[in-house]
Amino acid sequence: MNISMTLNPENLLSFSPLHRLQWEEAQQKTVILYPEGMVELNQSSAEILKLCDGSRQLAQLVQELETKFETTGLTDDITAFLEVALKNGWITQN
């Protein structure tokens, strides 16, 4: 596992194999599950994490979301969230 705490834009982003990302019908929310814990995600965070599947770097991920939501200027927000995700161990980069 890469434990570097800063986001490297060159690296591919993957969701952590030690966590599970799952849609919860009862809560109508996507959640992250890990040993004895759960984090509820809002819709945009969930969309970002779903794209962390080991096939994209930061720029590709941003671009894909900007296209999907027909908007621009998402880089800063997405970067900030991914940094939090990295620090919490939700994603890894390799």
């Binding site: 799952q22 919860e24 009862a26 809560q27 959640v31 599950l33 004895e36 814990g37 759960m38």
Partner: peptide, 9 residues
Amino acid sequence: RKMGAVQLG
């Protein structure tokens, strides 16, 4: 589970 339980020990 139907009620919404998700963590199981």
